[in-house]
Structures are given as C-alpha cells and as structure tokens.
Design a protein around this nucleic acid. Structure first.
Lengths: 201, 201
DNA sequence: CTTGACATTGACCGACCAGTCAACTACTAT
DNA sequence: ATAGTAGTTGACTGGTCGGTCAATGTCAAG
C-alpha cells in the first residue's frame, strides 16, 4: 500500500511537470511513465484514462499553489492590501527563478490547461473553473478586511477579487508568450488600480 | 495560380477553425486536409510543416481580428475612451453569438496558441508576442488621445494599454474556462479602473 | 508543339498514440 | 498454509501522427 501510493504519486508528479512545461496533448502516457519509472500497464492500474490523470494533476497543482504561493502571501502579519502586493511579488520571484533554471516562463498551470482543454473535456473544464473560483477567495477576504479596516471604501469584494485574479491570468499569458518574468512585475503594478479606483494617484 | 491560392486558403481556413476550437496538438494534418478537401500530399506542397501552417493561421487570425473587432471599435466617431468600451462590447457580442451557435466560448486564438506553444516553438511564440504587442497599439492611441483631449490625466499610455490588453487576455481565459460569455461583460466593467485610476467613483 | 513550373495524388514511412490484457509477483488477512 | 487482493509486467491492438516521394496532371509562356 505504501509502494502503491508511491507509484501513483510518482506518476502524478511526472505528469504534473511534463504537462505544465509542455501541454496535455503533446505529452503521451508513455513519456509520463518513462519519467515516473513505471510501466504503462501499471499506469492503467491507477488511472482509468489519461484525462483522469489530468484531474489528479490539477488537484496536486492546486495544493502546490497553496503551499508555495497563496498560504505564504495571505498571512495577516501585514495589512490586507499589502498581502495582495506580496502575492504578486511571490509569483514574480517564482517565475524568475524558473526562468533562470529552465530558460522558460511556463505561465499558470490552470490557465494553460483551461485554454487547451475547456472545449474538449467538461470535467477538466469544471475542475479548472473550480480552482479559479477558489483562488479568488483569499483576495476577496483580504479586500473585505481592507474595507473593514477603512483602508478601502465600500467595495464589491467578490467582483473585485475576480477581476484581480482574471488580471493575474492575463499577466501569466503575457509573461509566458513574451517568455519574460519581468512582465509579472511591470503589469502587476497596475493591479492596485483594479482595487483602489477612488484613490487619487 | 488562382486555384493554387484557393487551395492554400482553404487549408488555412480549415486549420484556423479547427485549431481555434480545439488545439494545435489535438488537430492533425490529416483532419485539416479532410475539412479543406485537400489531399495530404498537396498540403505539403504549400506548407513545409504543420508549424508553418500555424504561423500562416496566426496571420490570418490577426487579419480577422482587425476586420471584425479592432477596426470596428477604434473609429473616431465617438470619444477615445468610449472606443475602448465599445471594444469590450464587440468582443462580448462576438463570443455571445459563438456560444449560441456552438455551445462554447473559445477564448482568444492568440492567447490559446501562446499558452500551448510558447515553450515549444520559438517562431510561434514570437509571432503571438508580436500580435499581442500590435494589438496594444489602438488602445495606446486612444489613451493618448484621451489625455490630449483632457479626458484623462497624464498617463503612461503604452503601459496602461498593455495592462488593459493583458486584462483582456485574462478575461478570455476566464470566459473560456467558465464557458460563459457574460464574464466578458462583467469583468470588462472593471477595465475602466485600469484606465482611470484618479477618477473618484 | 514543347518546355518547365506549378499542382495534385495516393501510396508509403517509422514512430507514436491511448488503451487492453493475461500472466505473474508480493503481500496480507484469515 | 492458504486464499485473496493489490501491484507489476510486457506484449499487444488498431489507429493516428507528421512527413516523404515519385508519378501524374494542368496550364501558360516561348
């Protein structure tokens, strides 16, 4: 049972990396198995199909995003709006490091898969949609808190949080297409305007 | 020569639709040829490879975007900032109609291909990058004009235009992943905040 | 009427695709 | 000790992948 979990986890990890750095349709089951050092027959013992693996990879990627980004950014050691700024900094630092290591900006794993698969697999689309919705929550909470604290005038926190995260997705498309993590920093600066429309300069 | 151009054009049109509604890696050369009613041997008379076809498709898609969206939105019959609002309306109307016809929101053809191919084909990445850069220009021009007219305080028009178009890309990712064109309208409302930071409410 | 360029065709290539399966091994609970 | 379960293996399927090629067809300029 320990070994089984380990095999399954190795498959997920291998797929996560390959699909993120390439794309779902470009990476085959065989290649995933090679990287995970698992025979293909064994793969189908753990996953009924390739798309079920993609679903598991999405769960895994969401967990990683929380560990490495969201749970680090949204800590109440600093004011709520500063946490949002910290979010952008962490995302920038992450992609800057990845670019240094690999030469590439790979963008957002959820946006990537959403763009590739949303019109082709309803389950994958729904799971990505759910992850995006969930990702808005920490922003929404920070915005509400900022309003309560008086840092922000009355705001529709849910709508604004959604706008911010949509902007984040757009930034990731841009950074990936230009293969330049600096765009995350430069475009990130404008995110505050999405938040504080009433602020004068 | 007429017939030759026609064959080439049929291939491009077929590929444009198939790649836009599915993805580059999911659609094969054979399927493109079937839809274009062209034999595969003939395909390779016009295109040295599938990726060269993708490059041609990108050119075609850019031309279509100008005809159907940009050149309709950015006409100086209305004030510059109203043109940007009109851009969002046209994009919304387009995707609303496509959703009605096909059941799907397909997002942005450039963002889609950029996400899928940027780390895999440098020529495609550069072409998408170029298209995004070019697409910012009408926004930049409108913003500059708005500043000149006094509709807007002094602004870095280039940086703001880029932020807006990045936001547009994010909106398209969201609309595609939620398969809901209404998101374009709802999120589009917030774009003005990217433009007019100093405006009070 | 001939030449040469362009266009078209279908057969073909090796590689790979997702997925199947029966046989086998290793371990666990009784 | 044994029966049952979970995990592993490698051979296999039918189909598709991007791409090649030689033969043939078409047509216009000289």
């Amino acid at each position: 049972m320990e070994s089984s979990n380990d095999t399954r986890q190795r498959i997920i990890s291998a797929a996560q990396e390959l699909i993120y750095t390439r794309s779902y349709n470009e990476v085959g089951v065989q290649e995933i198995c090679n990287r995970a050092e698992v025979k293909k027959g064994s793969f189908y013992h753990f996953f009924p199909s390739k798309r079920d693996l993609a679903l598991a990879v999405l769960d895994q990627s969401q967990a990683v995003m929380y560990e490495t980004i969201i749970n680090r950014a949204f800590v109440d050691d600093i004011p709520p709006l500063a946490r949002i700024e910290r979010f952008f900094t962490i995302v920038y630092d992450f992609h800057k490091q990845v670019k240094k290591d690999t030469g590439y900006v790979f963008g957002c794993p959820f946006g990537n898969l959403g763009c590739e698969m949303s019109t082709r697999d309803e389950d994958i689309r729904c799971k990505v949609d759910d992850i995006l919705r969930t990702s808005e929550k920490p922003f929404e909470k920070a915005l509400s808190e900022a309003v309560t604290r008086g840092d922000l005038p009355a705001t529709d926190a849910a709508a604004t949080a959604r706008a911010i995260f949509a902007y984040v997705e757009g930034i990731m498309v841009y950074a990936k297409t230009r293969n330049d993590p600096e765009l995350i920093r430069e475009l990130g600066k404008h995110a505050l305007q999405l938040i504080i429309p009433a602020k004068i300069q």
